[in-house]
């Protein structure tokens, strides 16, 4: 894939890239289908029940039948909703979730765009999702939607600040925003060891960004019905769900690249295992952690939620930046 990058841009190349991007899209959709299946299965096992097991062998076709059902359902739009914004919101929520994958290095060779500003690109695009949420909440003209959308937006922007700041420590150590350079810099030791504080902040803030438990207040079904997507039905609703899981895919790859050494093996002696397998193992571990947390943690209380981001995570992230900068200066002999 990297050899294509060096050729002059031409129509055939654009076609190649498009086909590769469609292939990645199919991989991501396959991931989403079976991530939902495994989520239900794993949580089922943790609660001592079998989970989905009726549609197809072992219930493997459960998600596919769910998606088909959503496709065949009528798409209602409330009379009082803002028509244009109501249509726009699912697109705004989904598009950035997929577009961030353009810069992700899965291995040394399997990568799409090799941007010098990789981290910045990810962070800039992923914050557009908030727009989709707030637009959906507003356009529905529904009281639950509006409150749910506002809460979601407040939560997502509050946790974005510590999320973005926890990465600064890594950039200090690497001296580059390029995701490939960040992986190469982890040859000796993964970033999770020297940047443990940053890792913890990133992990917690990422949960809140993804709206997953224990931060799933936006979808608090017991108090807000379903939050910002109450009025959405059929495939528009499916787009919001899809965006959530594609975003989880993106966050998983990002956390593997930033903190867990990307495609690098645990120990150099294990490098006979192909790099993509290493990447998938680490990525799967993160995805499993998500399901595990969902089965374990109770939901945060709304009044504790905002305080936690500003009073705990933000100071810790700032402290981590100063500490990292100090240690680097110390190692350089206060030059």
């Amino acid at each position: 894939m990297s050899s294509w990058l060096e050729q002059a841009p031409s129509l055939t190349n654009v076609l190649h890239y498009s086909l590769a991007a469609v292939a990645l899209l199919l991989v991501v959709l396959g991931f989403v289908t079976y991530a939902i299946y495994f989520e239900r299965k794993v949580i089922g096992w943790m609660q001592l029940r079998p989970g989905p097991n009726r549609v197809g062998p072992l219930g493997l076709l459960q998600t596919i039948s769910d998606v088909t059902k959503l496709l065949l359902k009528e798409d209602t739009r409330p009379k009082h909703a803002d028509k244009a914004l109501f249509t726009l919101a699912p697109i705004l929520a989904y598009s950035p979730a997929f577009a961030v994958l353009a810069v992700m290095p899965f291995t040394d060779t399997i990568q799409f765009a090799d941007l010098g500003v990789g981290v910045l690109y990810y962070i800039a695009l992923s914050s557009i999702t908030v727009m989709g949420v707030i637009t959906a909440g507003w356009a529905s003209n529904n009281k639950y939607s509006l409150i749910g959308g506002m809460r979601s937006a407040a939560q997502m922007i509050s946790y974005e600040v510590p999320l973005v700041m926890s990465v600064v420590g890594i950039i200090l150590m690497t001296g580059s925003l390029n995701l490939k350079d960040i992986v190469y810099a982890q040859q000796d030791v993964w970033n999770i060891v020297p940047q443990f504080l940053g890792f913890i902040v990133f992990l917690i803030a990422a949960q809140a960004e993804l709206n997953r438990s224990p931060f799933d207040l936006p979808e608090a079904e017991s108090e807000l019905v379903a939050g910002y997507h109450v009025e959405y039905s059929g495939f528009r609703f499916a787009m919001f769900m899809l965006a959530e899981y594609v975003y989880m895919f993106g966050m998983g790859t990002l956390i593997v690249v930033l903190f867990l050494g990307g495609w690098l093996p645990i120990h150099p002696s294990l490098d006979f295992i192909p790099p993509i397998i290493w990447f998938i193992i680490k990525f799967m571990f993160y995805v499993f952690l998500q399901f595990w947390l969902r089965a374990t943690m109770p939901r945060f209380r709304a009044d504790q939620l905002m305080g936690f981001a500003w009073k705990v995570l933000l100071p810790v992230a700032l402290f981590n930046i100063m500490l990292t900068a100090f240690v680097i200066t110390y190692q350089n002999g206060f030059m």
Binding site: A21, I91, S95, M239
Partner: peptide
């Protein structure tokens, strides 16, 4: 060329990201 290609890829991803919801909700749906 590398620089231009990188941003061509980014544009393709953005386009594809918009195309999937538009196609599935407004055309196939």
């Amino acid at each position: 060329a590398v620089y231009a290609n990188n941003y061509v890829i980014v544009a393709i991803f953005l386009l594809l990201g918009v195309l999937l919801p538009v196609a599935s909700v407004s055309i196939i749906g």
